[in-house]
């Protein structure tokens, strides 16, 4: 008897502990999500009721050229950032990991500093540095291309440049994750493999890489989700231009919702983006896990 009563009390305590979370979660996540889904089937403006239009918004989406351009740009940006930033972070982490105590802390601070900056500061810094007339990086660009390039006004340069800015801004966090992973690998494994005759590269290939794989998979997945949600940098640096060459889905959501007051259509785009992120990241994580098992 006592035990049953105990268990009941246990449950009560458990429920009362998760109740605040569930309440807040429903208020700020579940309810808005439900509203967005509902809205995407209406022609509602941003505020106020609309009429039920069924799949009309989605049908319109499939014929919207800007939607395809944005989707393509999102994909292009993912290609430009996810793997490069992961590789770069891994490289930096392995180098930083070799430094001794104080130098390591210093290097880490240097690489992590940009991550602390607000996005508007980051874009401001890079807008200055890449300014067509006065930017201090223009001579470097001129060195390779022969002449200065207005990077945010050139369709070929705009996405890669935003990718570089983004990598510079967020890479510190990935370095931190990799560094934590590297520290988890016992130093004896490196000593044992050195005795076994492994070169530094073989040690990386046969010890570090496979043991770091879970961290790599995590970083890749987090990056994929993060980079698909691209908005701030584009909005602040190029506003989607030139000729929509840096237009992305979230920018489209923003424009439809807040500039054109098409709440229903914006919701449909947002939901599609949400689905894309879900499907792609789950797919990628599963693929990475299978890849990890075969190692």
């Amino acid at each position: 008897m006592a035990m049953i009563r105990d268990r009941r009390r246990h449950k009560l305590v458990a429920y009362s502990l998760i109740l605040p979370f569930v309440a807040i979660f429903s208020l700020v996540f579940a309810y808005p999500t439900f509203e967005v889904i509902r809205m995407s089937f209406t022609n509602a403006p941003l505020i106020g009721e609309g009429e039920w239009v069924g799949w009309a918004n989605y049908r319109e989406l499939l014929t919207d050229r800007l939607f395809y351009t944005s989707l393509k740009n999102n994909g292009y940006f993912v290609l430009l950032t996810v793997i490069p930033t992961t590789a770069l972070a891994l490289l930096i982490a392995t180098l930083v990991n070799r430094l001794s105590g104080r130098m390591q802390a210093l290097a880490l601070v240097l690489f992590f500093m940009p991550y602390v900056l607000p996005v508007s500061v980051v874009t401001q810094i890079w807008a200055w540095m890449l300014d067509f007339q006065f930017g201090i990086l223009q001579p470097a660009i001129a060195f390779f291309t022969g002449k200065p390039v207005p990077v945010f006004k050139n369709p070929n340069w705009v996405m890669p440049t935003i990718a570089v800015v983004t990598i510079w801004w967020t890479n510190g966090f990935n370095v931190l994750l990799f560094l934590a992973g590297l520290r988890n690998i016992p130093s004896e494994l490196y000593e044992a493999s050195a005795l076994d005759g492994a070169t530094k590269w073989q040690q990386f290939k046969r010890v570090t890489w496979p043991l770091l794989w879970p961290v790599t998979a995590l970083v890749l997945t987090l990056q994929l989700i993060l980079q698909l949600k691209l908005f701030d940098q584009v909005y602040l640096l190029s506003e989607g231009g030139p000729f929509n060459s840096s237009y992305v889905l979230l920018l489209m959501v923003y424009r439809e919702a807040f500039q054109l007051n098409n709440g229903g259509y914006a919701s449909a785009v947002a939901l599609v983006l949400f689905l894309v992120i879900m499907v792609v990241s789950v797919l990628q994580f599963q693929l990475l896990r299978i890849g990890g098992k075969n190692k």
């Binding site: 016992p186 004896e188 494994l189 000593e191 044992a192 493999s193 050195a194 005795l195 005759g197």
Partner: peptide, 18 residues
Amino acid sequence: PAKRGVAMVFQSYALYPH
């Protein structure tokens, strides 16, 4: 180390877990 002709057994075994 590799050219000394020695092999070492560590206290923690140092086996490659993967």
